[in-house]
Nucleic acid binder design. Structure first.
Lengths: 175, 175
DNA sequence: CTAAAATTTTAGGCAAACCTAAATATTGGA
DNA sequence: TCCAATATTTAGGTTTGCCTAAAATTTTAG
């Protein structure tokens, strides 16, 4: 009963349709081709396959919409993408464009149990930060070489005087 | 001069040869096929390609060794693999086999700048832990639902009394 | 040394994804 | 309405990476 896994490529098509559907009523081949930077004729083939798998409503020259099943699968893909992008960009402080690009590839290989670990990990970091450690900011300082081990050990251990220096100027000017 | 990127598949072959070379003097097609779970005839094709690219010493029926260039590339792949495996297994606490399997796929999409962020991030976590927070252990508690937000906020903020409870029984019995 | 066993390569195929070029269908404006 | 512009599909081809089966080579054991 469990549908067999989609290829990375088909996941990309489905995800693209999902986002285009959110902006317009329905997707058209042109939009998909543009978004994925592939030839129009490549789209046709992918649409046929997705249609066969019951993930989209499609017939030649027709508008393209997701089926209920397709929308669920697409949502899952989009969630993976978003979780990974968020981790890369806001925890590892990878520059936005690179984070986006990397998440795009990771989303096809990180699933299920591993993805949920990422989710919990991000949650945890956010709670930790709320707890007062300014933890992520400290990391951003760390790799950007503004790190003073003694000072930050204290910071991480919760001493008030130094904590501030780890929390200000956070978003990482890594140049 | 910069060699064009290898496909994920070819990276797998190169990495396999690297590990087999460490165990024996040289690799043979049989070993590679077994390690990668592919047919012998698939190996032949990959060897030809890697040879053409100057990454391995190879001629039909001969033993297989890495060239200097090939060894450098292979080391880089192996490093990516190891960094990611380490992160998944020891930070996210993903079960070893799944961590291994996932790292195997991630290694082909996480490179350069992003990989170095992972490296720094792991370093940072280790320093943080040394600083006394038992940070990773706290995370393992967190997702395994033994988490008490109030208690652990204090823990992360460095209060001595509660810190201990976050640090004991660490390695995550997440069942 | 030689025949059987093991190993490796070749030959031929298949499927996924992509491409270009050439139809075909749809749509909007005169 | 009908033509031109736009959009889409079909036809045919390439590359990558895998497979099976058969041939070729090397190794090993008697």
């Amino acid at each position: 009963m469990m549908a067999e896994a989609l290829s990375g490529s088909l996941e990309d098509y489905l995800e693209a349709i999902f986002f285009i559907e959110q902006q317009k009523q329905a997707a058209r081949a042109k939009d998909i081709a543009q978004r994925l930077q592939v030839n129009h004729s490549s789209v046709t083939g992918a649409l046929r396959t997705l249609s066969q798998k019951g993930l989209i409503n499609y017939s030649p020259y027709d508008l393209i919409t997701l089926t209920t099943k397709g929308r669920n699968v697409a949502k899952d893909i989009a969630r993976r993408h978003e979780v990974l992008r968020h981790f890369l960009e806001d925890v590892l402080d990878v520059p936005p464009e690179l984070a986006e690009e990397t998440a795009c590839k990771m989303e096809h290989v990180v699933r299920g149990e591993v993805l949920e670990r990422f989710v919990k990990f991000i949650e945890f970091i956010e709670v930790s930060s709320r707890a007062g450690a300014g933890w992520v900011q400290c990391f951003h300082k760390y790799y950007s070489r503004e790190w003073d081990e003694e000072e930050c050990k204290k910071c991480l251990a919760g001493e008030k005087g130094v904590k501030k220096s780890c929390q200000e100027g956070s978003t990482g000017d890594h140049g």
